[in-house]
Design a protein around this nucleic acid. Structure first.
Lengths: 252, 252
DNA sequence: CGTTCCATTGAGATGTGTCAATTCAAGTGG
DNA sequence: CCACTTGAATTGACACATCTCAATGGAACG
């Protein structure tokens, strides 16, 4: 088991964070999203014991890379992450954006290798959940096992949603859907559903949605002209939720 | 627990099959794909006890429908299935094809409702694996728990592969990739990697790949003209594997 | 205050969708 | 056995949404 050294200054070793003494799953304000378990406080403590927190990642630092040995899944604590795969001809495909409370890295379980890379879109803190510990704990705690099955299943349905979006929907519909998705996820975290700052670039949005930057930009312009939303660079304000839903053309 | 009645002759009740007395996981020739477990024979027996087999589904019969209560996942024993979602405006999106040895239905775990529908593409037999039993058994058998996590993770990576395909690749590349995928999966089942019969229609292929029927048809014609494969309706013969890989433009 | 990166906007090119006609295969009933 | 029907697949002509290429504008940062 070798220790991985910093790789071109851009792949970090997670070190324990010595500041956040009080942070634990019991008092984390995200635990209703991350691990909405009807856990006995005793159980929470056990879960808490296996979770490792570390100092934050800087923007564009990698949490893991495609092909890395899979050891843990991660929960976003603050900031935002993107997951992406690199195709054989060197292009990227963004497979997901992850906001506080959301879990990433589950695609690595099948081969014990990470199937995608994960990168911080802005300064971000994560909780590392070592998978072997999680497995052992799951075998002992039925609710945790169930919960983790559900998390993975949710990742599957989210991917299928994206598949449908890419396969069937126009550029307008895709961008509108993403805005609605971010809005919904924001409100789950008790943040504004109508006003937020996009942590990702237009390139990332286009890449995720199977569009070019130019098209994304044009869609935003169109939406602005229709007074559906106000765009100021990464700052988004939804002016007409119904109009946005209509544009997305999905009941989601 | 109500018994579901046949629904317009097209939704069946799975009844125990009284013919295949000898069929069990231990002697199933697919068990290297379906459940490649280093299980003690005792363990296999336990698993076998929870699995229910039933009489085959006829072509176009549903195994489950989007919104149905989720109770089980299913392993294809023979034939082929497709999974699909219906969008809000009534269109279909095929999310996957499933061949013998492959597992479907895992997207229902997150909400206890099936997130997609599953339909037989041809006469097909399945093994039903009740999920609560599977959960209990998993908690007792670490290898089974691990295996099921891996199965779900594999479903995630497969979906991500499709996302990339839809987002980045041309019609030629998409169809070529699908042909290669089927070829690979066939050879895992010790069937011919170069000659097979497609169980799905052109419509299904197009739908799955985000293309119209006409485009799929044109791609097949093009491939035939380039002598990459020979197409006779649903009968496919791959003449030039390398050419096909080159056309797919993926190292998969 | 330049440099660099990111975002916007325009004009033209192109791959795939749309519409329509034709062929082919499979099944049905006289 | 032959019409007849029905659904699937193929092929062609044209339209259009999005991509590509190129220029410009604006924000962030040293």
């Amino acid at each position: 088991m070798t220790v991985r050294l910093a790789d071109a200054g851009d792949h970090i070793v997670l070190k324990p964070c010595i500041h956040d003494y009080q942070v634990n799953c019991g008092n984390c304000r995200l635990n209703s999203i991350c691990l909405p378990l009807a856990l006995e406080s005793d159980d929470i403590e056990q879960l808490d014991n296996i979770i490792q927190r570390s100092k934050p990642l800087q923007k564009s630092q990698h949490l893991y890379r495609e092909g890395d040995e899979f050891k843990s899944v991660f929960a976003v604590r603050s900031g935002a992450m993107k997951a992406y795969k690199t195709t054989d001809d060197g292009r990227e495909q963004v497979t997901g954006f992850y906001f506080p409370g959301e879990i990433l890295g589950m695609d690595g379980i099948s081969n014990n290798l990470h199937a995608s890379s994960a990168k911080a879109l802005e300064t971000a803190a994560v909780c590392e959940i070592p998978f072997t510990s999680l497995e052992k704990l799951s075998a002992m705690m039925p609710t945790l096992q169930r919960h983790f099955f559900q998390l993975m299943s949710r990742e599957i349905t989210a991917d299928q949603q994206l598949i449908t979006l890419l396969s069937k929907n126009s550029a307008d519909e895709r961008v509108a859907s993403l805005m609605l998705s971010i809005s919904t996820r924001n409100s789950k975290r008790k943040l504004s559903a109508t006003q937020f700052r996009l942590p990702m670039s237009r390139v990332d949005i286009g890449n995720y949605l199977g569009l070019t930057v130019e098209t994304v930009s044009r869609v935003f312009s169109r939406m602005q002209k229709l007074e559906i939303l106000r765009v100021d660079n990464k700052e988004i304000k939804i002016l007409d939720v119904q109009g946005l839903q209509k544009m997305a053309n999905v009941g989601d």
